[in-house]
Nucleic acid binder design. Structure first.
Lengths: 202, 202
DNA sequence: TTGTTTTTTGAACGGCGTTCAATATTTTTG
DNA sequence: CAAAAATATTGAACGCCGTTCAAAAAACAA
């Protein structure tokens, strides 16, 4: 039955159309300043129709949150080319920082919006989980080569994530203005280099 | 002229009354979910009157942001009792973490709300600046004792702040659920201990 | 008391997320 | 083909929001 098949494809296309509009407006104006009416206007539909394709604004958020993690994971996997795990770990931090710089609003959506993101919404949550798993496995690999030998993996992972995230979070919420004779890029990259230097001694 | 004096005091009292209501609702429901009408209801006034005493919602935010930093700074200054600067630095991280745990919503207000907080609003901004200065001076002191000798103070400060902030930010936005066989306290405190261990080797 | 100033109210404006009856469109059936 | 059923879209409405402002109330000055 090719008809229901096409029907589903069309529905999927509409979903995508809404998502495209939403992404555009979300990433330009941020999550809170984007209204359903804005999104609808962007794609030349009435606001109501969105609710035929999505439960609510938060479901759209979930999808974009999801997209963001897929994008991030893709950039992580580029690192598979780097053979030495510690080098890979160091590079991962830079990838995250670059990601925050290039996709500030994705980063906000993914890490800095207080949003239900119920674990029941298994889908998006598991992808986020996968990104974390990538980091954790990397750290375990490092430990197998003798680095951070005596440290608890879980706490170490949390700490390293925190350090990287802290850099990005300060940047994404514009809390870097007090270091003003440096550009954000200098601050983030050299600040991170500083952290890496610590890791190297550890 | 005692009359205008009392008048000013009364006006100040009303301002405080609004601030008290706002603090209560803000810290219970968070910044975004608090409406001017909520605040007004809390103190049994009409919503409009708030605009006689404050320019807008953001000005109330600024005041509370301010309060938060004063509270944090007070807790920082307790550390003056600790003589060794590196010990003081280590303790400062714990103070910040405890602050985030005990005053999660203040922490959100202070560090995780995307809000103008124009530098033109000198008042609140300078107090935030002062907290940062406290950290920076502490690090400089550490460097005088020979620690972190060869590192750039500015980047080092940013890095240390980022690491501490990252821990708190993940906690305050409920992004710790993926480390779930640990409590938030365990995670934050042992994660931080992990970071301190690194600092000690550096 | 009367007039003036300060404070408070409550209605209103435009915008928000969301719902839903009515409508338009597409698909299925006879 | 036409009619019926299913699907997709609209636009008005609801009850919120931050904010403004004319009018009312309260406090003060004369």
């Amino acid at each position: 039955m090719g008809i229901t098949e096409r029907k589903q494809k069309e529905k999927q296309e509409m979903r995508q159309r809404i998502l495209n509009g939403a992404r555009k407006v979300f990433l330009k104006n941020g999550y809170q300043q984007t209204s359903m009416r804005n999104i609808a206007t962007e794609i030349n539909y009435s606001a109501g129709v969105i609710y035929f394709h999505f439960k609510d604004k938060s479901e759209i958020f979930q999808e974009l949150h999801n997209e963001g993690f897929i994008l991030l994971l893709k950039q992580f996997r580029v690192l598979d080319a780097v053979k030495d795990p510690f080098e890979r770990l160091k590079a991962l931090g830079m990838v995250l920082i670059k990601f925050a710089q290039d996709h500030k609003d994705y980063y906000n959506l993914m890490f800095l919006v207080e949003e239900p993101l119920k674990k029941s919404e298994e889908n998006g949550f598991q992808i986020a989980e996968e990104a974390l798993k990538y980091l954790r496995n990397l750290i375990i690999e490092c430990q197998h080569t003798g680095r951070f030998k005596d440290m608890d993996t879980e706490y170490l992972t949390f700490m390293i994530l925190s350090a990287m995230h802290g850099i990005c979070a300060l940047f994404c919420k514009d809390k870097t203005t007090s270091f003003e004779n440096k550009t954000n890029e200098e601050l983030m990259e050299n600040g991170y280099a500083c952290f890496v230097a610590l890791l190297e001694k550890g």
